[in-house]
């Protein structure tokens, strides 16, 4: 059993999330045995109730911080982890629940719950990196299985993950998809969205929903201008940017620019 002791200890943690990203790890089927062979899965409540004490060599963190308790818990996990990698839109951008950041949480709580006094929640949903230092952020809603394997493999081999940060358009063009925006006039976030999904939606003639969040050096204002030209109203633009990555800086700013009616298009008109 000495071999097992030498393996890096992997832990998987859940914060505010739907569990879909950590399930991607269980969904790895073909590679799962290889993962189990390369690392010791020390803590992964979704897979096993057995748990090994920290510290951990690699922590995968899913979900966003939405409660005071979680804000404390992530600091303890960071303290116990040599490397900490966040996985998915919730952990890297606050997730869909970050829509609360644009609204009044107390109003939500009093509307939804019969006894609001039992609810202890923060006014915002924030990514893990706003609370503790993060070694690598893996994007997506959900994450890509192959990119997750790449991140774990890179960690095991002691190198940087090869996860491109360019646009979805490049995946689209390499796959030979037709551009739905140019050829159909379909609104698409592909030109400002981080690659990783393999251009799934455009392959089915749908515009990109931005599940992987902003790409490197995103120019959302220029895309908004074009989408407005294609007939999208400001409220539609706000909704387009406010989905799974609503709190990601570039998408947040793009939606806020259209929310307050101070869009460049409107400025031009008298």
């Amino acid at each position: 059993m000495s071999g097992i002791a030498a393996k890096p200890k992997l832990a998987v943690w859940k914060f505010a999330s739907c569990d879909g990203c950590q399930l991607s790890l269980l969904d790895c089927e073909d590679e799962l045995l290889a993962v189990a062979g390369a690392v010791q899965i020390a803590s992964f409540p979704e897979a096993s109730s057995a748990s090994v004490e920290g510290p951990y060599d690699l922590s995968l963190v899913e979900g966003s911080v939405t409660t005071p308790h979680d804000a404390r818990r992530i600091r303890e996990i960071r303290r116990q982890s040599r490397r900490l990698v966040t996985i998915g839109a919730c952990a890297t951008a606050g997730g869909i629940q970050a829509l609360r950041n644009f609204a009044d949480v107390d109003a939500f709580v009093s509307t939804v719950y019969a006894s609001p006094e039992y609810i202890d929640t923060l006014a915002t949903s924030t990514p893990i990196a706003e609370h503790v230092p993060v070694d690598f952020e893996l994007r997506g809603c959900p994450i890509s299985k192959s990119q997750l394997i790449e991140v774990i493999t890179a960690f095991v081999h002691g190198r940087r993950p090869d996860v491109p940060t360019y646009s979805v358009c490049e995946e689209c063009k390499r796959a030979g998809n037709l551009c739905v925006m140019v050829a159909h006039g379909t609104p698409c976030l592909g030109p400002v969205t981080h690659a990783g999904c393999g251009a799934l939606c455009p392959a089915y003639n749908r515009g990109c929903y931005g599940c992987f969040g902003p790409k490197e050096t995103p120019n959302a204002p220029a895309l908004s201008e074009r989408l407005a030209g294609l007939g999208m109203s400001d409220p539609e633009l706000v909704r387009l940017y406010r989905t799974f990555n609503a709190h990601a800086e570039a998408f947040r700013e793009a939606s806020e620019a259209r929310e307050h009616g101070d869009s460049p298009t409107e400025k031009k008109s008298p």
Binding site: Y166, S167, E170, K173, N219, A222
Partner: peptide, 13 residues
Amino acid sequence: ADRCLSCANCTMV
């Protein structure tokens, strides 16, 4: 550059 999305479509096509 204010208009360019640096999406790389031009180079791909």
